[in-house]
Design a protein around this nucleic acid. Sequence first.
DNA 1: TATGAATGAGATTTCATTCAT
DNA 2: AATGAATGAAATCTCATTCAT
Lengths: 206, 206, 206, 206
Amino acid sequence: MPTKKKPQSTTAAPPERRGELLHTAAEVFAEQGYNATTVRKIADQAGMLAGSLYYHFDSKESMLEEILRTFLDELWTGYDTVLDAGLGPRQTLEALVTESFREIDRHRPAVAIYQREAKALVAQERFGFLAASQRRFEKAWLTTLEQGVADGVFRADLDIRLTYRFVRDTVWVAASWYRPGGQHSPEEIARQYLSMVLDGIARRDT
Amino acid sequence: MPTKKKPQSTTAAPPERRGELLHTAAEVFAEQGYNATTVRKIADQAGMLAGSLYYHFDSKESMLEEILRTFLDELWTGYDTVLDAGLGPRQTLEALVTESFREIDRHRPAVAIYQREAKALVAQERFGFLAASQRRFEKAWLTTLEQGVADGVFRADLDIRLTYRFVRDTVWVAASWYRPGGQHSPEEIARQYLSMVLDGIARRDT
Amino acid sequence: MPTKKKPQSTTAAPPERRGELLHTAAEVFAEQGYNATTVRKIADQAGMLAGSLYYHFDSKESMLEEILRTFLDELWTGYDTVLDAGLGPRQTLEALVTESFREIDRHRPAVAIYQREAKALVAQERFGFLAASQRRFEKAWLTTLEQGVADGVFRADLDIRLTYRFVRDTVWVAASWYRPGGQHSPEEIARQYLSMVLDGIARRDT
Amino acid sequence: MPTKKKPQSTTAAPPERRGELLHTAAEVFAEQGYNATTVRKIADQAGMLAGSLYYHFDSKESMLEEILRTFLDELWTGYDTVLDAGLGPRQTLEALVTESFREIDRHRPAVAIYQREAKALVAQERFGFLAASQRRFEKAWLTTLEQGVADGVFRADLDIRLTYRFVRDTVWVAASWYRPGGQHSPEEIARQYLSMVLDGIARRDT
DNA sequence: TATGAATGAGATTTCATTCAT
DNA sequence: AATGAATGAAATCTCATTCAT
């Protein structure tokens, strides 16, 4: 039987229902995986019947699409601000990592969904925007790393693509264990991650 | 004269078929996700009909179980050898990371499946062995890191659980892009990853 | 001074809305078929939401009923005038055919709906009036044809039921291609059809 | 509960199951209309469960497509034989009409489905072959009629397109009442129809 | 060992209809 | 009169699994 979330205070702005439902769907997708999530589970969580979701959305897949699109749109707003700021490579890297943790904080379910599903989705025409985003992403990071090597702020003895994957994945998988509102703020986690990524975990003999 | 064992039926070695099919299944599971993989897809890939798989296996789930069990058994054989060798924390960490990349090389599909599905599976009784493995895994790594901090070979200013997750994720997500037989051997990748994890990607001012 | 009946609410004549909506519904039913027509499609066409139709009508089926009833009422008004006029069989046939084309001209959507749906509807109690109409129809035509054969104005060498179906189908299927306001008036089409039905399309050797 | 048709003699050629099912589906489609026919009704009639149909067919729509394609393929085999025979216009017309009644006799359900559904289906890309067939059909008939007028065997005072529609529809709607195995053979019905179409139903004063 | 055909449970989706505002 | 949101029943479709051959 449906689990009502809340009877809602009195009156909320009307066009938010969609957003609420997407939020609910994203949480269930993130928790159980897209394929294992039935529309009935989403509807239960939202306190309605499965069929009622189709008043708001065309299909289960269109919910997934909208969740991922919304997330990527906001992610790129943040990234573009960083990339357009004209910082040096090290500051750019720090800002990108920090921004990433902020996005994980704001869109944890969407990030988790992205991690788990993106690989299988890119093949579909409908999710072509994922591939486009991945290309921009790769370009932004590779450029930053290459510039850093050229400027002498990053090590020159590492395979640059390997480094790219290392930094990229290391940051984003954090979404699988990160819980918003936990001990550390996203900025604090970013700080520690950056410290590990930049300086390593081995103790320096100074 | 040639050494014939038995006048075998008609076709090739029968008991290997199981292994081949598990291999095929693992690849499809890794490619598309367990839930999105239909037994028909596996059968197609193996050149048979869906129903025929049930001569070899009890169920789709039992294929998954066998794939993961086989992988974890081999992983722990390797890990136990390292952990029982009485090395210092830094050498232990290096050996575990190297061993992990070797396992990715040998069992890439299984590793990818594990990454994607483990979280949802541990709740099931049948997959209790996953939880047991995770606990041993966490213990082995945390002990090594703590010993390293105590011995002064790892930095003491980092949150130890954050460090654990950092190292753990860093290694295993490589399965998502690693392709056996590529440019770098697993040992070479391990070397570079260890270099980044231990010393960081920033250039040192000597 | 202008003759105002009542200080009407705000918008135009309310009781006409029903008729407009029935007109719209009939067109969509005729275009796509009753079953394939969703109330949403009708509402879209009418510039309102699906639920709003239920202010005007009890159900989708009641719209269909009203459309068909209105059409058959008018049809029989015309037919009865002809049948009660005491004409000879040939003039009766000509008048009935002409009247039929006039009805197609006025109620084309309803005729198309009737053609397509009547067979499945007659079984329902609610649409019993269709069966009644069909019986009267058959009787009127058969009587006319039989009288014509008896009078020697129609050929005696043809199966009378086959002839009946021939004339009936010949006339009504025209609704499937007829477009009001096209090249030919209904009377002109009737004239040509009557010429073919009565005298055939082969050239006579005079 | 499912209505088993027959336990079938002993062994029928295996690849006929598809054909049997299409036959069953065609009968139900013709009887109730495509949209009003549920896959469950077809399955009931075939003595199986609804889901089992999907072992043989991709979708309900693909059954419809195959039924119509098969019918049109056979229809055109027959028509082409007539059209390639080099007959005069009157013999061609007679042969086409006779062939049409034979097709109605062989494929009554498919013809009935075609009549009822074609108009709405042609809009769909998937059913583009219907439009193609219609164009060939129109061309064949118009050419024959025009040639007949030119040769002086058909009346010159009639609108040729009107005549085309008259003959075309008159013949094909017969599928709505024709029952194979009834009183008259298709050839006998064709003969009477041709007599009416060519010479009319009015008695000639010779 | 494998096929061909089916089952049966459950998933997604559709849609006429209702109802508070 | 009309909207926005929902219900609930039923439809289409999916798929792991079974089983006779």
